[in-house]
Simulated assay, not measured.
Amino acid sequence: MLVPVTPDLLVQFIPSPSQGVWHLGPLPIRGYALCIIAGIIAAIWIGERRWVARGGKSGEVSDVAVWAVPFGVVGGRIYHVITDNHLYFGANGHPIEALYIWRGGLGIWGAIALGAVGMIIGSRLRGIKLLPMLDACAPGVLIAHALGRWGNWFNQELFGKPTDLPWALKIDPQYRPDGYEDYATFHPTFLYEFLWCVLAFFVVIWIDRRLRLGHGRVLALYVMAYTLGRGWIETLRIDNVQLNDVLGLRLNVWTSIVLFALASAYFFWAGRKGLGREESVYHKPPLADDAGETSDSSAV
């Protein structure tokens, strides 16, 4: 039930930040950007540990990330602009603002798609097999998702339907969408996705350790875990995106359903084929003095 603003409603809630930008002289420091950067650093650190444990060389995940990260940021922005094009090219839009990435707005599906292209390029340049690299890095991307979602908290964006639950998120009046001006607290979907991604991270790591997955099955498991949570969280959101309703569901819900089905099909197909963990992560073995540590004891 939707509950309008009352004094009793405001007794318990999660507050939104009083500001999302701080200035060091003329330099703006944005909470959204800090969360994205923290997520990238965490994903690279986790990926490095897993890569070395699989037989790769220390530093190679960082080398591949030099390609994957900028490709992913561009892809995420392109997806956002396409699916929310009315914000920039509508009657009151300003097309130049499509380039203002520091204001927020990254679509995860575009980030993953072009980020994967960057990983393909980086892996080829290093003589690395792509699937082992993707398997090593995939769990860390869940932590990147989790940390990046706190950027939505700083921006007071992408929250859910009005609610009076004790963990409801208070949204300032200027950030409430049309039709919801009389409601002060909403579902904190950023928090739901943060918790889901952290839980999914540990589940994926646990399954990988037990089954010693390879040939892209960790990546498939990551996609399955993320889309399973994203699908139901998406149904709570009220932000007005382009293609907001496709056969009764938001576009991102359909995307989650399709990707979950494809990832599940590959995961079980590869399992039936008996595709275990790769013996080598390189197309050609690295030189002896370049070989990294290979002990599974350091794996995340």
Score class of each variant (00 low, 15 high):
13 F>N: 13
102 W>A: 02
39 G>P: 08
24 L>H: 09
118 G>A: 04
13 F>K: 15
14 I>G: 06
113 A>C: 10
139 P>W: 15
128 I>K: 15
73 V>A: 03
55 G>C: 00
18 S>P: 12
143 I>R: 14
63 D>K: 14
51 W>F: 01
53 A>T: 03
148 G>N: 11
95 P>N: 05
65 A>Y: 07
151 G>S: 11
97 E>W: 09
94 H>N: 13
21 V>S: 04
124 R>P: 11
95 P>C: 04
140 G>V: 12
135 D>Y: 14
112 I>R: 14
115 G>A: 04
78 I>F: 09
29 I>Y: 14
15 P>N: 08
21 V>T: 14
75 G>E: 04
141 V>S: 13
72 G>Q: 06
68 A>Q: 03
126 R>I: 02
126 R>Y: 07
64 V>I: 08
63 D>E: 08
22 W>M: 03
51 W>N: 01
25 G>P: 12
59 G>V: 03
93 G>Y: 12
95 P>R: 11
52 V>H: 08
80 H>D: 03
153 W>T: 00
87 L>I: 01
144 A>E: 09
31 G>L: 10
70 P>T: 01
75 G>I: 02
143 I>K: 15
30 R>Q: 11
94 H>Q: 13
73 V>W: 09
133 M>T: 09
78 I>M: 06
28 P>W: 10
13 F>T: 07
161 K>Y: 08
25 G>E: 08
118 G>D: 03
99 L>C: 05
113 A>T: 15
60 E>W: 10
101 I>F: 14
60 E>R: 10
93 G>E: 03
67 W>T: 00
76 G>F: 07
106 L>A: 00
159 F>H: 09
103 R>P: 00
17 P>M: 07
145 H>M: 12
50 R>I: 01
111 A>P: 06
54 R>W: 09
52 V>K: 15
141 V>R: 15
76 G>E: 02
57 K>D: 01
83 T>M: 13
17 P>L: 07
90 G>K: 11
20 G>T: 05
76 G>M: 05
15 P>K: 15
47 G>D: 02
75 G>P: 06
31 G>K: 13
133 M>V: 08
135 D>P: 15
136 A>C: 11
26 P>S: 05
142 L>Y: 14
141 V>F: 15
96 I>S: 09
122 G>M: 11
19 Q>V: 09
45 W>G: 01
79 Y>D: 10
103 R>V: 00
34 L>K: 01
64 V>H: 09
44 I>G: 06
115 G>L: 07
36 I>W: 13
81 V>P: 07
47 G>N: 08
113 A>E: 07
51 W>R: 05
104 G>E: 02
128 I>W: 10
115 G>H: 13
95 P>T: 03
34 L>N: 01
52 V>Q: 14
131 L>M: 14
86 H>Q: 11
45 W>A: 04
118 G>I: 06
145 H>G: 01
158 L>H: 12
47 G>K: 09
71 F>G: 00
86 H>A: 02
87 L>N: 06
41 I>E: 02
29 I>L: 14
78 I>N: 07
78 I>R: 10
114 L>W: 10
66 V>N: 07
17 P>F: 13
23 H>E: 13
60 E>C: 03
96 I>G: 04
154 F>M: 10
50 R>T: 01
20 G>P: 10
28 P>C: 08
104 G>I: 01
44 I>F: 08
160 G>T: 06
75 G>F: 09
40 I>M: 13
83 T>P: 04
30 R>V: 00
159 F>N: 03
89 F>P: 04
49 R>P: 02
110 G>A: 05
87 L>C: 00
